[in-house]
Design a protein around this nucleic acid. Structure first.
Lengths: 110, 110
DNA sequence: ACACTCAATGCTTACATGGTTATATGTTTT
DNA sequence: AAAACATATAACCATGTAAGCATTGAGTGT
């Protein structure tokens, strides 16, 4: 990170994190990691309502995190910003590490 | 990321991102990157009110992102989860990349 | 004990956001 | 053109949360 950080920059970064701060959106993105999916497929996979999925997809698209392709009646969505998975992996790794630390501490006690 | 993702796991990941989704908290963390700082120092550096800073520090601490050390009258805070900077760097890099892409596209047009 | 300083804690307000329901738009099929 | 299907949008409600303000709590020095 830089030495100084402008307000706009901070706002942009925060915004990106905010997009990733919702379980349902994470679920959608997780599904898209396997490849392009239609709205209906995402509805089935996530268990959310169709309007809910559509709205999330809309906000994700507005911010460039997913792409949309229309084919006939259906809309196919796919990942639009690969950085997502780098970020998620980093977070998952950190959680795994912390979990292991706690586990090993428990091992020392027991 | 794994093939399947439990609800609790998604909630935990989302929670971490939520912590990073606020500009003021990012500002605080950014300040702490340079090293341990007291609340007063953070108040001065961020321009926020003291209660506001304290509250953010409290939530960050609750989730293990910062550590607290008391010395006499003052409380010194420091980064408690190094993964933060990996994540932030990934996001910053992605934004830089996208910016460069847009810039080069503009170059092609102009 | 008192005053002073640093930090934390309610309390309230204002605003953003996620979810639901109902409806609209758009496309294919009959 | 009418019905059926896929997706998007609008209106609404409930909840969460960030910021401000006043206050309390905790430590230090007189």
């Amino acid at each position: 990170m830089q030495a100084t950080m402008s307000d706009e920059m901070l706002e942009l970064i925060a915004q990106r994190f905010r997009l990733l701060s919702d379980p349902m959106r994470l679920r959608i993105l997780h599904q898209l990691q396997a490849g392009e999916k239609s709205v209906t497929e995402l509805v089935e996979a996530t268990g959310a309502s169709q309007p809910n999925v559509s709205k999330h997809l809309s906000t994700l698209r507005t911010h460039g995190l997913v792409r949309r392709r229309q084919e006939g009646n259906m809309a196919y969505f796919s990942i639009g910003a690969p950085f997502i998975f780098d970020v998620c992996n980093t977070v998952c790794d950190s959680m795994k590490d912390e979990l292991e630390q706690k586990t090993s501490l428990l091992g020392q006690i027991g």
